[in-house]
Design a protein around this nucleic acid. Structure first.
Lengths: 156, 156
DNA sequence: CCAATTTATATTGTGTACGATTTAATATGC
DNA sequence: GCATATTAAATCGTACACAATATAAATTGG
Protein backbone atom coordinates (compact mmCIF):
# COMPACT_ATOMS: atom_id res chain seq x y z
CA UNK A 1 0.00 0.00 0.00
CA UNK A 2 1.43 3.34 -0.97
CA UNK A 3 -1.51 5.38 0.25
CA UNK A 4 -0.36 5.85 3.82
CA UNK A 5 2.08 8.50 2.63
CA UNK A 6 -0.96 10.47 1.50
CA UNK A 7 -2.46 10.51 4.98
CA UNK A 8 -2.63 14.01 6.39
CA UNK A 9 -0.08 13.65 9.15
CA UNK A 10 -0.62 17.18 10.30
CA UNK A 11 -4.21 16.55 11.36
CA UNK A 12 -3.07 13.43 13.24
CA UNK A 13 -0.91 15.51 15.53
CA UNK A 14 -2.25 16.65 18.88
CA UNK A 15 0.21 19.53 18.98
CA UNK A 16 -1.13 20.91 15.74
CA UNK A 17 -4.68 20.51 17.02
CA UNK A 18 -3.75 22.67 20.00
CA UNK A 19 -1.82 25.13 17.83
CA UNK A 20 -4.66 25.61 15.35
CA UNK A 21 -7.35 25.64 18.05
CA UNK A 22 -5.46 28.46 19.74
CA UNK A 23 -5.44 30.44 16.50
CA UNK A 24 -9.17 29.91 16.09
CA UNK A 25 -9.73 31.06 19.67
CA UNK A 26 -7.68 34.20 19.13
CA UNK A 27 -9.78 34.99 16.07
CA UNK A 28 -13.01 34.28 17.97
CA UNK A 29 -12.01 36.61 20.80
CA UNK A 30 -11.07 39.40 18.41
CA UNK A 31 -14.51 40.96 17.84
CA UNK A 32 -15.40 40.55 21.52
CA UNK A 33 -12.19 42.08 22.81
CA UNK A 34 -11.88 44.93 20.35
CA UNK A 35 -14.90 46.51 22.02
CA UNK A 36 -12.81 46.45 25.18
CA UNK A 37 -9.71 47.63 23.32
CA UNK A 38 -7.76 44.58 24.50
CA UNK A 39 -5.76 41.82 22.86
CA UNK A 40 -6.16 38.27 24.18
CA UNK A 41 -2.91 38.31 26.22
CA UNK A 42 -3.88 41.70 27.62
CA UNK A 43 -7.28 40.26 28.53
CA UNK A 44 -5.56 37.41 30.39
CA UNK A 45 -3.53 39.91 32.43
CA UNK A 46 -6.70 41.82 33.23
CA UNK A 47 -8.39 38.55 34.30
CA UNK A 48 -5.66 38.00 36.87
CA UNK A 49 -5.94 41.55 38.13
CA UNK A 50 -9.73 41.36 38.35
CA UNK A 51 -9.39 38.20 40.45
CA UNK A 52 -7.45 39.66 43.31
CA UNK A 53 -5.58 42.60 44.69
CA UNK A 54 -2.30 43.81 43.34
CA UNK A 55 0.36 41.48 42.01
CA UNK A 56 3.99 41.73 41.02
CA UNK A 57 5.24 41.17 37.48
CA UNK A 58 6.78 37.91 38.66
CA UNK A 59 3.46 36.66 40.06
CA UNK A 60 1.75 37.54 36.81
CA UNK A 61 4.40 35.59 34.96
CA UNK A 62 3.89 32.54 37.14
CA UNK A 63 0.16 32.59 36.63
CA UNK A 64 0.33 33.14 32.87
CA UNK A 65 3.57 31.28 32.11
CA UNK A 66 5.10 34.41 30.64
CA UNK A 67 8.37 36.19 31.36
CA UNK A 68 9.23 39.84 31.82
CA UNK A 69 10.29 40.13 28.21
CA UNK A 70 6.67 39.63 27.25
CA UNK A 71 4.98 41.23 30.23
CA UNK A 72 6.93 44.45 30.55
CA UNK A 73 5.93 45.90 27.16
CA UNK A 74 2.40 44.49 27.49
CA UNK A 75 1.95 46.15 30.90
CA UNK A 76 3.33 49.40 29.54
CA UNK A 77 0.62 49.33 26.88
CA UNK A 78 -2.06 48.67 29.50
CA UNK A 79 -0.60 51.53 31.52
CA UNK A 80 -0.70 53.88 28.54
CA UNK A 81 -4.38 52.95 28.18
CA UNK A 82 -4.81 53.95 31.82
CA UNK A 83 -6.05 50.47 32.79
CA UNK A 84 -3.24 49.59 35.20
CA UNK A 85 -0.69 51.33 37.35
CA UNK A 86 2.89 50.13 37.75
CA UNK A 87 5.07 51.09 40.68
CA UNK A 88 8.17 49.78 42.41
CA UNK A 89 7.41 48.14 45.73
CA UNK A 90 8.83 50.37 48.49
CA UNK A 91 9.47 47.24 50.61
CA UNK A 92 11.57 45.69 47.85
CA UNK A 93 12.59 47.98 45.06
CA UNK A 94 13.27 45.04 42.75
CA UNK A 95 9.59 44.28 42.51
CA UNK A 96 7.06 46.14 40.39
CA UNK A 97 3.51 46.04 41.67
CA UNK A 98 0.72 46.16 39.14
CA UNK A 99 -2.67 47.48 40.22
CA UNK A 100 -5.91 48.29 38.47
CA UNK A 101 -6.86 51.90 37.86
CA UNK A 102 -10.47 53.00 38.28
CA UNK A 103 -10.86 52.63 34.53
CA UNK A 104 -9.39 49.12 34.72
CA UNK A 105 -11.86 48.18 37.44
CA UNK A 106 -14.75 49.41 35.33
CA UNK A 107 -13.75 47.26 32.38
CA UNK A 108 -14.50 44.20 34.51
CA UNK A 109 -18.21 44.70 33.99
CA UNK A 110 -17.87 45.17 30.25
CA UNK A 111 -15.93 41.92 30.05
CA UNK A 112 -18.36 39.83 32.07
CA UNK A 113 -20.12 38.20 29.13
CA UNK A 114 -17.01 37.35 27.13
CA UNK A 115 -16.35 33.80 28.47
CA UNK A 116 -19.93 32.65 27.93
CA UNK A 117 -19.93 33.96 24.37
CA UNK A 118 -16.77 32.05 23.54
CA UNK A 119 -18.10 28.83 25.06
CA UNK A 120 -21.28 29.19 23.05
CA UNK A 121 -19.30 29.74 19.85
CA UNK A 122 -17.45 26.48 20.51
CA UNK A 123 -20.77 24.69 20.19
CA UNK A 124 -19.75 21.75 22.37
CA UNK A 125 -21.31 20.18 25.47
CA UNK A 126 -19.98 21.76 28.66
CA UNK A 127 -18.90 18.37 30.00
CA UNK A 128 -16.74 17.72 26.94
CA UNK A 129 -15.10 21.10 27.27
CA UNK A 130 -14.40 20.50 30.94
CA UNK A 131 -12.81 17.14 30.15
CA UNK A 132 -10.57 18.72 27.53
CA UNK A 133 -9.56 21.47 29.92
CA UNK A 134 -8.54 18.98 32.60
CA UNK A 135 -6.60 16.83 30.18
CA UNK A 136 -4.78 19.83 28.72
CA UNK A 137 -3.77 20.95 32.18
CA UNK A 138 -2.26 17.54 32.84
CA UNK A 139 -0.41 17.65 29.53
CA UNK A 140 0.90 21.14 30.22
CA UNK A 141 2.11 20.24 33.69
CA UNK A 142 3.76 17.04 32.48
CA UNK A 143 5.62 18.91 29.73
CA UNK A 144 6.79 21.65 32.06
CA UNK A 145 7.96 19.18 34.72
CA UNK A 146 9.95 17.21 32.19
CA UNK A 147 11.83 20.34 31.35
CA UNK A 148 12.62 21.29 34.94
CA UNK A 149 14.46 17.98 35.35
CA UNK A 150 16.58 18.79 32.32
CA UNK A 151 19.77 16.81 32.94
CA UNK A 152 22.84 18.77 31.78
CA UNK A 153 23.88 15.71 29.74
CA UNK A 154 27.32 16.94 28.76
CA UNK A 155 27.83 14.50 25.92
CA UNK A 156 31.27 13.54 24.68
CA UNK B 1 -21.02 33.24 49.94
CA UNK B 2 -18.28 35.67 49.04
CA UNK B 3 -15.62 33.03 48.35
CA UNK B 4 -16.44 32.43 44.72
CA UNK B 5 -14.70 35.66 43.82
CA UNK B 6 -11.50 34.11 45.16
CA UNK B 7 -11.68 31.15 42.81
CA UNK B 8 -8.87 31.10 40.27
CA UNK B 9 -10.94 31.96 37.23
CA UNK B 10 -7.97 31.68 34.95
CA UNK B 11 -7.50 27.96 35.53
CA UNK B 12 -11.23 27.41 34.99
CA UNK B 13 -10.98 28.68 31.45
CA UNK B 14 -10.57 26.26 28.60
CA UNK B 15 -9.04 28.93 26.40
CA UNK B 16 -6.28 29.54 28.90
CA UNK B 17 -5.69 25.80 29.17
CA UNK B 18 -5.14 25.69 25.41
CA UNK B 19 -3.05 28.86 25.48
CA UNK B 20 -0.74 27.62 28.24
CA UNK B 21 -0.57 24.07 26.86
CA UNK B 22 0.61 25.54 23.57
CA UNK B 23 3.36 27.44 25.35
CA UNK B 24 4.46 24.28 27.14
CA UNK B 25 4.50 22.41 23.84
CA UNK B 26 6.62 25.10 22.19
CA UNK B 27 9.08 24.82 25.05
CA UNK B 28 9.10 21.03 24.85
CA UNK B 29 9.82 21.09 21.12
CA UNK B 30 12.65 23.57 21.53
CA UNK B 31 15.49 21.16 22.42
CA UNK B 32 14.27 18.64 19.84
CA UNK B 33 13.98 21.15 17.02
CA UNK B 34 17.12 23.12 17.67
CA UNK B 35 19.08 20.06 16.54
CA UNK B 36 17.21 20.44 13.27
CA UNK B 37 17.66 24.21 13.26
CA UNK B 38 13.91 24.76 13.05
CA UNK B 39 11.30 26.65 15.03
CA UNK B 40 7.95 24.98 15.67
CA UNK B 41 6.08 26.87 12.90
CA UNK B 42 8.93 26.12 10.50
CA UNK B 43 8.68 22.46 11.50
CA UNK B 44 4.94 22.53 10.70
CA UNK B 45 5.66 23.88 7.22
CA UNK B 46 8.25 21.15 6.71
CA UNK B 47 5.70 18.53 7.85
CA UNK B 48 3.34 19.64 5.09
CA UNK B 49 6.12 19.56 2.51
CA UNK B 50 7.29 16.13 3.66
CA UNK B 51 3.76 14.84 3.23
CA UNK B 52 3.33 15.54 -0.43
CA UNK B 53 4.70 17.16 -3.53
CA UNK B 54 4.95 20.87 -4.02
CA UNK B 55 2.37 23.29 -2.70
CA UNK B 56 1.55 26.95 -3.16
CA UNK B 57 1.79 29.50 -0.38
CA UNK B 58 -1.99 29.65 -0.35
CA UNK B 59 -2.31 25.88 0.12
CA UNK B 60 0.19 26.03 2.97
CA UNK B 61 -1.89 28.76 4.54
CA UNK B 62 -5.07 26.72 4.27
CA UNK B 63 -3.45 23.70 5.87
CA UNK B 64 -1.78 25.64 8.69
CA UNK B 65 -4.37 28.42 9.13
CA UNK B 66 -1.74 31.06 8.42
CA UNK B 67 -1.68 33.94 5.94
CA UNK B 68 1.00 35.21 3.59
CA UNK B 69 2.05 37.84 6.11
CA UNK B 70 3.28 35.03 8.32
CA UNK B 71 4.33 32.53 5.68
CA UNK B 72 6.31 34.74 3.33
CA UNK B 73 9.05 35.70 5.81
CA UNK B 74 9.02 32.20 7.32
CA UNK B 75 9.51 30.62 3.89
CA UNK B 76 12.27 33.09 3.09
CA UNK B 77 14.08 31.92 6.20
CA UNK B 78 13.66 28.28 5.18
CA UNK B 79 14.93 29.21 1.73
CA UNK B 80 17.98 30.95 3.16
CA UNK B 81 18.68 27.71 5.08
CA UNK B 82 18.50 25.91 1.72
CA UNK B 83 15.64 23.69 2.90
CA UNK B 84 13.02 24.86 0.40
CA UNK B 85 12.85 26.47 -2.99
CA UNK B 86 10.33 29.17 -3.94
CA UNK B 87 9.36 29.93 -7.52
CA UNK B 88 6.48 31.59 -9.32
CA UNK B 89 4.23 29.10 -11.08
CA UNK B 90 4.69 29.56 -14.86
CA UNK B 91 1.03 28.55 -15.39
CA UNK B 92 -0.16 31.28 -13.03
CA UNK B 93 2.38 33.88 -12.11
CA UNK B 94 0.37 34.94 -9.08
CA UNK B 95 1.16 31.67 -7.33
CA UNK B 96 4.43 30.81 -5.62
CA UNK B 97 5.24 27.11 -5.50
CA UNK B 98 7.25 25.85 -2.57
CA UNK B 99 9.31 22.68 -2.98
CA UNK B 100 11.82 20.82 -0.85
CA UNK B 101 15.49 21.00 -1.69
CA UNK B 102 17.67 17.89 -1.37
CA UNK B 103 18.73 19.19 2.04
CA UNK B 104 15.11 19.66 3.00
CA UNK B 105 14.31 16.08 1.97
CA UNK B 106 17.16 14.76 4.10
CA UNK B 107 15.90 16.53 7.21
CA UNK B 108 12.82 14.31 7.09
CA UNK B 109 14.83 11.40 8.48
CA UNK B 110 16.36 13.47 11.26
CA UNK B 111 12.87 14.59 12.27
CA UNK B 112 11.31 11.13 12.33
CA UNK B 113 11.55 10.61 16.09
CA UNK B 114 10.30 14.03 17.14
CA UNK B 115 6.54 13.26 17.43
CA UNK B 116 7.07 10.16 19.57
CA UNK B 117 9.36 12.05 21.93
CA UNK B 118 6.78 14.76 22.44
CA UNK B 119 4.00 12.25 23.07
CA UNK B 120 6.18 10.48 25.63
CA UNK B 121 6.93 13.76 27.39
CA UNK B 122 3.20 14.38 27.72
CA UNK B 123 3.02 11.28 29.89
CA UNK B 124 -0.62 10.57 29.08
CA UNK B 125 -2.40 7.48 27.70
CA UNK B 126 -2.58 7.52 23.91
CA UNK B 127 -6.35 7.14 23.98
CA UNK B 128 -6.75 10.25 26.12
CA UNK B 129 -4.54 12.24 23.78
CA UNK B 130 -6.52 11.06 20.80
CA UNK B 131 -9.79 12.08 22.44
CA UNK B 132 -8.41 15.55 23.17
CA UNK B 133 -7.20 15.92 19.62
CA UNK B 134 -10.59 15.05 18.20
CA UNK B 135 -12.42 17.38 20.55
CA UNK B 136 -10.03 20.25 19.80
CA UNK B 137 -10.57 19.79 16.11
CA UNK B 138 -14.31 20.08 16.60
CA UNK B 139 -13.84 23.20 18.71
CA UNK B 140 -11.55 24.77 16.13
CA UNK B 141 -13.90 24.07 13.25
CA UNK B 142 -16.90 25.36 15.19
CA UNK B 143 -15.10 28.61 16.01
CA UNK B 144 -13.93 29.15 12.45
CA UNK B 145 -17.37 28.42 10.98
CA UNK B 146 -19.01 30.89 13.34
CA UNK B 147 -16.74 33.56 11.98
CA UNK B 148 -17.41 32.81 8.33
CA UNK B 149 -21.11 33.46 8.94
CA UNK B 150 -20.27 36.85 10.44
CA UNK B 151 -23.46 38.83 9.93
CA UNK B 152 -22.70 42.50 9.22
CA UNK B 153 -25.11 43.46 12.03
CA UNK B 154 -25.16 47.16 11.32
CA UNK B 155 -26.53 48.18 14.68
CA UNK B 156 -28.37 51.43 15.21
C1' DC C 1 29.89 45.28 57.37
C1' DC C 2 31.04 44.30 52.79
C1' DA C 3 32.02 41.15 48.71
C1' DA C 4 29.68 37.58 46.15
C1' DT C 5 25.46 35.68 44.93
C1' DT C 6 20.73 35.70 44.00
C1' DT C 7 16.48 37.83 42.58
C1' DA C 8 13.26 40.99 39.91
C1' DT C 9 12.65 43.62 36.15
C1' DA C 10 14.03 45.75 31.84
C1' DT C 11 16.28 45.56 27.32
C1' DT C 12 17.71 43.53 22.95
C1' DG C 13 17.36 40.54 19.03
C1' DT C 14 14.88 37.08 16.42
C1' DG C 15 10.73 34.95 14.98
C1' DT C 16 6.03 34.38 14.71
C1' DA C 17 1.00 36.23 14.04
C1' DC C 18 -2.33 39.00 11.69
C1' DG C 19 -5.02 43.10 9.83
C1' DA C 20 -4.58 46.32 6.21
C1' DT C 21 -2.66 47.73 2.12
C1' DT C 22 -0.15 47.17 -2.20
C1' DT C 23 1.19 45.02 -6.48
C1' DA C 24 0.90 42.03 -10.14
C1' DA C 25 -1.56 38.55 -12.65
C1' DT C 26 -5.69 36.26 -14.03
C1' DA C 27 -10.64 36.07 -14.73
C1' DT C 28 -15.04 38.41 -15.90
C1' DG C 29 -18.52 41.27 -17.96
C1' DC C 30 -20.27 44.20 -21.24
C1' DG D 1 -11.14 43.41 -26.34
C1' DC D 2 -10.66 46.06 -22.74
C1' DA D 3 -12.13 48.02 -18.18
C1' DT D 4 -13.35 45.94 -13.83
C1' DA D 5 -13.15 42.61 -10.41
C1' DT D 6 -10.93 38.94 -8.18
C1' DT D 7 -7.01 36.42 -6.64
C1' DA D 8 -2.14 35.40 -4.76
C1' DA D 9 1.86 37.16 -2.60
C1' DA D 10 4.39 40.54 -0.59
C1' DT D 11 4.82 44.49 2.45
C1' DC D 12 3.94 47.29 6.54
C1' DG D 13 2.70 48.19 11.28
C1' DT D 14 1.59 46.44 15.79
C1' DA D 15 1.78 43.00 19.30
C1' DC D 16 3.13 38.90 21.36
C1' DA D 17 6.84 35.34 22.85
C1' DC D 18 11.19 34.03 24.53
C1' DA D 19 16.39 33.41 24.97
C1' DA D 20 20.12 36.05 26.39
C1' DT D 21 21.90 39.85 28.55
C1' DA D 22 22.00 43.96 31.53
C1' DT D 23 20.96 46.44 35.69
C1' DA D 24 19.82 47.29 40.14
C1' DA D 25 18.25 45.83 44.63
C1' DA D 26 18.24 42.48 48.29
C1' DT D 27 20.32 38.46 50.54
C1' DT D 28 24.05 35.73 52.23
C1' DG D 29 28.67 34.43 53.95
C1' DG D 30 32.67 35.44 55.93
Amino acid sequence: MSDDTVKPKLEQQLCFAIYSAMHAITKAYLPLLENLGLTYPQYLVMLVLWEGGDVTVKQLGERLYLDSGTLTPLLKRLESMDLVHRARDPKDERRVRVTLTAKGQLKHKEAQMVPAQILTAMGRPADDLKAVRKELRKIRNALLETRTVKAPSKEA
